[in-house]
Design a protein around this nucleic acid. Structure first.
Length: 279
DNA sequence: CAAGAATCCTGTCAGC
DNA sequence: TGCTGACAGGATTCTT
């Protein structure tokens, strides 16, 4: 599920429900997700007041009034359940539940368990091993064509793989890389170091725009998070290439000349693109 | 070192 | 309908 826009949407939903609240009770459904829960997680959370939230790449940081932050990653299948704390029966794969002082339950649901939870000192969040090596935030003003070109210099891996590498840019995933490359008319197979000049100048705003639009779409369906089992209202209606193999692309001055959207496999992930438009 | 493969899990869906 | 295999929005760790 979660790439940057989805994580941003989830983070805003958590902020709206949890900021300023005290966590009255914690339930740990199992001792680990991808990694073991940190020692003392339950104790650290119980009785703590939530002071704020922050997103970094695909990570959510929930700050407590105890100088510690909870670091969350949703992995492939993670989502947050936000529901009135009535009967309190955990749903399937609800591995961590927070019960607030004002009668709400916030659950971390993750069937595949690729997600993770850790604790980090609030004043040293960015030095956590999972955050330390991340590249720039794509929506940050400092992320521009010059920064991107510098990141890609000398890299002979395909641009698709380079954009998925969180050390280069932080927060992009398979879907939005496909969409951004389509919008920028850059072939996913092009060598990363050949994406410079006009191509980098197109790619940066394409990345920013697709992420911004997706966040706006996610934000409009935040209410979905209040429903147990509710799914995030996705940006999927706006996908122009992802999952659209065989369809004519929206941009070719076709249909006669559009060869259709192709699917290829790059580093074991599906890539969708228009071979005629993207060069 | 950079780049590719294997790996952790469960759910879903297409095809037989 | 029931079974099987492919595949899924991620990212670390292990090999080449």
């Amino acid at each position: 599920m979660p790439e940057l826009p989805e994580v941003e949407t989830v983070m805003r939903g958590l902020r709206a429900r949890l900021e300023g609240r005290v966590i009255a009770r914690v339930r740990l459904g199992r001792p680990d997700l991808r990694w073991p829960f940190p020692p003392g997680l339950g104790q650290m959370l119980t009785g703590a007041r939530v002071t704020g939230f922050r997103r970094r790449a695909k990570y959510i940081l929930m700050r407590l009034d105890r100088g510690e932050s909870v670091l969350l990653h949703l992995g492939m299948s993670g989502r947050m359940l936000i529901a009135p704390d009535d009967e309190g029966v955990p749903v399937l794969h609800e591995h961590l539940s927070l019960h607030t002082d004002d009668g709400w339950r916030v659950g971390f649901v993750d069937p595949r368990r690729f997600g993770s939870v850790d604790l980090v000192a609030t004043d040293a969040e960015d030095s956590h091993r999972l955050l330390a090596g991340l590249g720039p935030e794509p929506l940050d003003d400092m992320f521009d064509a010059a920064v991107l070109s510098e990141m890609l210099r000398g890299k002979r891996t395909p641009i698709k793989a380079a954009l998925l590498d969180q050390r280069n840019v932080a927060g992009l995933g398979n879907i939005y890389v496909c969409e951004a490359l389509f919008r920028a008319r850059v072939s996913p197979q092009r060598g990363a170091d050949s994406v410079a000049g006009a191509r980098a100048a197109r790619l940066v705003p394409a990345i920013k725009m697709v992420l911004t639009e997706a966040i706006a779409a996610g934000g409009s369906s935040l209410r979905d998070y209040v429903q147990p089992g509710g799914e995030l209202g996705y940006f999927q209606h706006a996908w122009q290439v992802y999952g659209r193999e065989g369809e004519l692309c929206a941009t070719c001055p076709g249909p006669p000349r559009c060869v259709g959207i192709h699917r290829i496999v790059q580093s074991a992930r599906s890539t969708f693109y228009c071979p005629r438009l993207q060069r």
